[in-house]
């Protein structure tokens, strides 16, 4: 695949529009810069309910920034972001968010159960204690990710993969309509990854899922769309990487540390193009 090849591709910058339906996530002409360094330019995305989107791109390409814009954690300098049809600050409670795991939180004095319970924040009012119902919901979510037997363990005594699963439970506990996952597969072994994808595939029947990964080898058969981010954004409404996407990731000179090796994947992502 030659970078910058002039093949005709089916790039749909705004996704396939569905008449009369409010998208779960809608981004219009958004640009974002960190300390006047542009991170994202002219982003247009529409994600409809039920989608399963992989957000891929090189390190520093703006994947996490894109997710934070969708959640309202960052405000675009230009353009408009809508989440579930309204301002993200209003609707963010209806989504689940699993942030990128950092080793910094290892020393924090908190148990697995208490981390999961924090996902009930916003459902249980400010100044109120968590109820028995909250605890049961937390236990249910931990059971779903296979962490219930560790519920009284300190987060610092767990492995990276176990912490990731706890953070997933925290995101799931509020029954979100949209689930955002930032690098959910990092520090999880291959078996764990395929189990996690099976779980996400099951959850996708109820909720829209967006997940960030820098590892293109990690795309599974459950994925329905791919967003490729490297300052500019391509939305591909198929679980395949188009030549345009590849060139966006690989063809920009120094910004190309992306793993395009498709090893051990249950699905072909570097696919033939039907029109070739």
């Amino acid at each position: 695949m030659a970078p910058g090849g002039d093949q005709q591709t089916t790039v749909l910058p705004e996704g396939q529009s569905r008449a009369g339906e409010v998208p779960d996530v809608e981004i219009e002409n958004c640009s974002f810069a960190f300390n006047s360094v542009p991170v994202l330019r002219d982003v247009n995305i529409r994600i409809y309910h039920g989608d399963f989107v992989a957000i891929i791109g090189p390190n520093g390409g703006g994947k996490t920034t894109l997710v934070k814009l969708m959640l309202g954690l960052l405000k675009p300098q230009k353009g408009r972001v809508r989440l579930l049809g309204s301002d993200p600050a209003k609707s963010c409670r209806r989504v689940g968010y699993m942030p990128q795991y950092s080793t910094g939180e290892k020393g924090f004095p908190i148990t697995v159960m208490d981390v999961a319970l924090l996902g009930r924040l916003g459902l249980t009012g400010i100044g109120c204690r968590f109820t028995r119902e909250d605890r049961e919901a937390a236990l249910g979510a931990l059971r779903l990710v296979g962490m219930e037997k560790y519920m009284n363990k300190r987060i610092g005594d767990l492995s990276g993969g176990q912490i990731q699963r706890t953070l997933l439970a925290r995101a799931l506990i509020s029954n979100p309509e949209v689930l955002f996952l930032d690098e959910p597969m990092a520090s999880i072994d291959i078996d764990g990854q395929s189990m996690l994808f099976d779980l996400l595939g099951e959850l996708n029947k109820k909720m829209t899922i967006l997940f960030v990964t820098h590892d293109v080898g990690l795309l599974s058969r459950y994925i329905k769309s791919i967003i490729c981010v490297n300052e500019t954004v391509y939305f591909h409404h198929e679980p395949k990487i188009s030549p345009d996407m590849a060139s966006l990731m690989m063809g920009t000179g120094e910004k190309c540390p992306v793993e395009m090796v498709a090893h051990g994947i249950p699905h072909r992502v570097l696919g033939r193009h039907e029109r070739d």
């Binding site: 934070k68 959640l71 309202g72 954690l73 963010c92 409670r93 989504v95 968010y97 942030p99 939180e105 924090f108 908190i110 208490d114 981390v115 319970l117 924090l118 996902g119 924040l121 916003g122 249980t124 400010i126 100044g127 204690r129 968590f130 925290r170 509020s174």
Partner: peptide, 21 residues
């Protein structure tokens, strides 16, 4: 009064914001 709020804010400020705190 606000133990769980202080805990949430200290543990993960961004997550707390997404939960509407």
């Amino acid at each position: 009064g606000f133990y769980k709020e202080f805990l949430a804010m200290s543990y993960d400020m961004e997550f707390a914001r997404v939960r509407g705190l």
